[in-house]
């Protein structure tokens, strides 16, 4: 006799429609920092690490009802490998209300220090996606060494995408800066429908010829919905 003959009925239990399936009623927006060694993570790696943190935190996350059920979670605009972020975002949908400060503490304890949970708040279920709501990114580079001259953005930069060279007009993307203050260089980039400009590509282009400069860090310090809200 096969040890598995009774499994028909067990399967029926497994597959039965779940009554009163809880709804994804609560949309928790989580703000986190990507810093320290975690700046070397890719967007996908950050996403996986935080999804696991949500599960470890024991939050009542909603799952999708499709072919391959998974957590209902949505991440903000991607950061490239090597670039940190002080106010990065993701939204996770919950099936029941957890006080935001409670969710915040649970998530902070469940995450690694280099993916630091800054804050949690509930937002409208219909609010724009975190990836679209803030098209303006303010970056700050910290540098070692003395700049020889004023920092001039080039008129365009050439990037390679999927094996093809592409020319990006810098004024289409650069909406503020560069502003130099001590060891800090700040500039803001606008994400466009057709794509974005990598901040490290622009920074490297601006620093060309500055052989004494070493970039210590490059961090997205703010994400804004409106270029006019920029501090400079």
């Amino acid at each position: 006799m096969s040890p598995l003959q009774n499994t028909e009925k067990l399967y029926a239990i497994l597959q039965a429609p779940r009554k009163n399936q809880p709804q994804d009623s609560f949309r928790l927006r989580v703000c986190f920092a990507k810093r320290g060694r975690a700046v070397m993570l890719s967007h996908l790696e950050v996403a996986h690490a935080l999804e696991r943190a949500v599960r470890r935190a024991g939050l009542p996350y909603a799952i999708t009802q499709g072919f391959s059920p998974h957590m209902k979670i949505a991440f903000g605009a991607a950061l490239p490998v090597g670039i940190g972020g002080e106010r990065e975002l993701f939204d996770v949908f919950l099936t029941s209300y957890i006080p935001p400060e409670e969710a915040h503490l649970a998530l902070r304890d469940a995450s690694v220090p280099d993916l630091f949970i800054v804050s949690c708040e509930y937002i409208e279920r219909s609010a724009p996606a975190a990836s679209n709501a803030y098209p303006v990114s303010l970056y700050e580079a910290r540098i070692d060494g003395q700049l020889e001259g004023p920092l001039m953005p080039p008129p365009f930069i050439t990037v390679v995408r999927k094996g093809k060279e592409k020319v990006l007009q810098v004024p289409d993307y650069l909406v503020a800066g560069p502003k130099v203050e001590g060891d800090s260089i700040q500039f803001a980039l606008l994400a466009r429908q057709e794509g974005s400009m990598r901040p490290d590509a622009l920074l490297n282009a601006m620093l060309e010829g500055e052989s004494n400069i070493r970039v210590r860090s490059l961090t997205r310090i703010h994400q804004l919905s409106d270029p006019y809200a920029l501090p400079f």
């Binding site: 499994t7 399967y11 497994l14 072919f67």
Partner: peptide, 15 residues
């Protein structure tokens, strides 16, 4: 020899 109808349904869940 141990993969019967029951096992086929139990192991993969929905995927």
């Amino acid at each position: 020899d141990s993969f019967g109808v029951g096992m086929a349904k139990l192991v993969a869940g929905e995927k």
